[in-house]
């Protein structure tokens, strides 16, 4: 299963990357793309300065959000769990909007740290409300309710401080608009979290067998849970700091991947990153090309697919 899926996924990713470079407000033919990387070329700005960094960013953010979702689903053993469903993404978003509204002159480089604090508070709030052994449904419903609360707080902030609305609005639905090399360099240090996440593949397999079996097989269940959630929160916060909360990606990508390659995390974690990258590249491509030059936020595209998927999972859960 896995060996067949991997090349197909890689091919799809490559195809979408090329498509993202070719299409947009103006279409660039395939053979001109490579010339677009040379300084002085007519397409240099569009390809090198605009579309390429944005596509790379979409891949990285998609991969990181999917990985965060897989980590959370892995340790909570709950198909409905992911940073966005649990309100962690919107918590990060709220903190970031708060920061941008009240400190409009502050350095934007602090944004990931601010978002991290917001998502940590959101995660702790959920923990405090639900405890460590709550049911699947309770966790999901509480998380969704908290996410809605954070979203309305964001709305409130924007009503109170309408001047800063433009900046914040870009953020709300999660968008890759106007993101480029600067944002990419902001995200780079957070990529260090990825090897730590992959390091957890083996214990994540075992925690799937239940705490009793996992402990009996030599895993420290509580430490693993803490490490996984901490990495997931870090991944989510860094992505939200750059693109805003892009909904349902962390929920849908690990699910689809589990259907494709099975539940072994040595394969699941790398594959889910590929699937997440593909989904966000696709969402951004559609968002940019559906009615150019007007752009929809990529977050809306992921929500259109993700929300029904979430409902379907909710109905299926007993």
């Amino acid at each position: 299963m896995a060996t067949r899926s991997l090349p197909i996924l890689l091919l799809a990713l490559l195809g979408l990357l090329v498509a993202n470079l070719m299409f947009g407000a103006v279409s660039i033919p395939f053979k001109s793309i490579f010339e677009g990387f040379q300084v002085g070329n007519a397409n240099y700005f569009t390809v090198h300065e605009y579309r390429f960094p944005r596509a790379i960013l979409a891949m990285l953010v998609g991969a990181m959000m999917a990985l965060a979702g897989a980590l959370v689903q892995g340790v909570i053993r709950n198909p409905l769990a992911s940073p966005d469903v649990l309100g962690v993404s919107h918590g990060a978003g709220l903190a970031a909007v708060f920061y941008m509204t009240f400190f409009p002159d502050a350095d934007i480089r602090w944004l990931p740290a601010v978002a991290l604090i917001g998502s940590l508070i959101a995660a702790l709030t959920l923990w405090w409300l639900c405890g460590s052994h709550s049911s699947t449904i309770k966790l999901a419903i509480t998380g969704v309710a908290l996410a809605a609360l954070y979203a309305s707080c964001i709305d409130f902030l924007m009503l109170v401080k309408p001047l800063e609305i433009n900046n914040a609005l870009l953020w709300l639905t999660g968008s890759l608009w106007g993101r480029g090399w600067n944002q990419l360099s902001m995200l780079l240090p957070w990529l260090l979290l990825i090897p730590f996440a992959l390091w957890l593949a083996k214990p994540l397999n075992l925690i799937h067998l239940g705490d009793d079996s996992a402990i009996s097989l030599g895993i420290k269940a509580n430490k693993l849970r803490l490490a996984s959630l901490a990495i997931a929160v870090g991944l989510t916060a860094s992505c939200v700091a750059i693109c805003g909360p892009i909904g349902f990606l962390g929920l849908v990508a690990p699910h689809l991947t589990r259907k494709l390659v099975g539940g072994r995390h040595q394969i699941l974690l790398p594959s889910t990153m590929l699937v997440g990258a593909i989904l966000l590249l696709l969402a951004d491509l559609v968002a940019r090309t559906i009615d150019p030059p007007i752009e929809l936020p990529a977050g809306i595209m992921t929500a259109i697919i993700g929300a029904p998927y979430f409902l379907w999972l909710l109905l299926r859960t007993k």
Binding site: R77, P79, H208, L209, G210, D212, S213, I215, S216, L217, G218, I219, K220, R258, K259, V261, G262, G263, R264, L268
Partner: peptide
């Protein structure tokens, strides 16, 4: 814990059903 896991093994009474394994 890894060393002990080579000495003692437990089969719990109930087990969750892992997906895709």
């Amino acid at each position: 814990s890894k060393k002990l896991a080579q000495q003692l093994a437990l089969l719990p009474q109930t087990q969750p059903i892992p997906e895709g394994i």
